[in-house]
Amino acid sequence: MTIREVNSKGKDSPISLKDEELVARARENDQWATEEFISRYQQKAYAIAYYLCSGDSEEAQDLTQEAFLKAFRNIKKFRGNSSFYTWFYRIVVNTCLDGRRRRRRRERIFSLWKPGQREEEPSQEVFEEQPDMGEDNNPMAVLSGKQLTREVRKALMFLPERQRVAFQLKVFQGMSIREIAHVMGSAEGTVKSHLFRATHSLRTVLKDWVVR
């Protein structure tokens, strides 16, 4: 049972609403429900987009916004066959993958026009430089941590798209295999297979780091 709060205008505060009720209100273009929906899901949606965009925070924000707009445009089509958040995360994942494909196509076209710059420019598929791992001030440890981070990023980027998505949703977002299957629109067995293959590839690449 949901505990409801009554706000100053005498209406139920959407803060206490369940997802289903929130969706019902958002369908009626309720401003509170829309705002609550955004504040409830924007961090998670951004985190998914961030990893899928290889750490490009600006692109991740743009795609998060695009995903929210798509979700609100299509909220009337949500039939409740799956939980609402998996439906929404599916939109986020598809928006990010489409965005990445668009970007890659654009880059390919521009690289054809400017062949000289192709080798000079660094790849866009790089995570933004992040602060050092932990509070360790030992220079060797810092260097080692940075190197490991680079290796992990590189290994992730070389994974096939679906394997990478399954792995990132599992390891970084902590989703269950069933949820990932809903989000990716695949069978649970397929997701397991993607996870196993991804882990196997990462293990091979990061062998030296893990065995240490």
Binding site: L148, R153, L202
Partner: peptide, 18 residues
């Protein structure tokens, strides 16, 4: 080994947040 691999991967990546 597998647990260490997953922990390493998870720890090496930044935790994004707005």
């Amino acid at each position: 080994q597998l647990l260490r691999l997953l922990q390493t991967v998870k720890a090496s990546m930044p935790s994004p947040g707005l």
